[in-house]
């Protein structure tokens, strides 16, 4: 494991799973924001490209004790990403202030080693060229390049919004490296009507997410594997927290 930088700014999310109804608005907002092509048949979930996927969690009990929860899964932007060191061509790195794991499409050769390394399945491959129905490509935003077939892509925390927020700060004469809470939020954060996602600088006490991730109900996915994700989940339900990681029978879950 090669070592990774520590950053002053650490963009992160706290996703309250008790507030997510699984409606899918975040997934749609993500596709539209990041120029992800629509897919006529997306029923093969192993071949449908979506940076943000909402998983369905169940407490495993039969009716009527059954409970269900939904877990939106963006890229975890791991502090110690398992995907970065394996890339043979430095198409992905974690090097920028803020700690967002980058993925550079023109560099990627499509070997998919990073996909094999990621236990969250956050990385997706362009199995085919992206196709929009005729005319619909006019709705592409200018912010994110369209990826050709044969490269890997993943959630970037809407990195372009980070850049835009910094530019806006510059034009307004503010410090681009001291963004206020809310200056930069991702498309999914913005879209969620339930406010299930809170986005901000985990290291900055002025940002709401800073407190939220310290909650005793906060957890991260597969924490014990040492990936150190920047995405936190919050749930008051013990069974949900338990599904955040693998536990042997006798092991206790936090919170």
């Amino acid at each position: 494991m090669s070592s990774f930088k520590e950053f002053k700014i650490k963009w992160g999310m706290a996703i309250d799973l008790d507030k997510c109804t699984g409606c899918g608005a975040c997934m749609v907002a993500c596709q539209a924001e990041n120029n992800i092509a629509p897919q006529p048949d997306a029923s093969n979930k192993l071949k449908s490209l979506n940076w943000l996927v909402v998983y369905e969690l169940t407490n495993g009990k039969p009716f009527p004790e059954h409970e269900v929860a939904y877990l939106p899964r963006p890229c975890m932007q791991c502090g110690k990403p398992s995907c970065v060191s394996v890339c043979p061509v430095i198409a992905t790195e974690k090097n920028e202030e803020g700690g967002i794991v980058s993925q550079i499409y023109p560099r990627c050769i499509g070997c998919r080693y990073c996909m094999a390394s990621c236990p969250y399945h956050a990385r997706y491959f362009n199995w085919f060229d992206p196709i929009w129905p005729e005319g619909m490509d006019k709705t592409l935003t200018p912010d994110v390049s369209v990826r050709p077939r044969g490269v890997v892509e993943k959630c970037s925390f809407c990195h372009h919004r980070f850049m835009q927020a910094k530019d806006k700060a510059r034009v307004e004469g503010r410090d681009p490296n001291a963004l206020n809470d809310g200056d930069y939020i991702t498309s999914c954060t913005e879209a969620c009507p339930n406010g299930a996602i809170v986005f901000g600088d985990v290291n900055n006490p002025a940002h709401k997410v800073h407190e939220l991730v310290k909650s005793k109900y906060a957890f991260r996915l597969l924490e014990r594997l040492g990936t150190d994700p920047q995405v936190y989940y919050v749930s008051r339900r013990e069974w949900v927290r338990r599904l955040g990681d693998n536990y042997l029978e006798n092991e206790k879950v936090k919170g």
Binding site: A32, P38, T139, L140, G195
Partner: peptide, 27 residues
């Protein structure tokens, strides 16, 4: 290019999964 949230709107404050796709439906 996008349908975005309008937090000031009395009927807004987020998107529904169908409204989020409304721009693309034009085409």
């Amino acid at each position: 290019v996008r349908v975005l949230t309008n937090n000031d709107h009395p009927l807004g404050g987020g998107l529904s999964s169908i409204a989020a796709a409304e721009v693309q439906l034009l085409y």
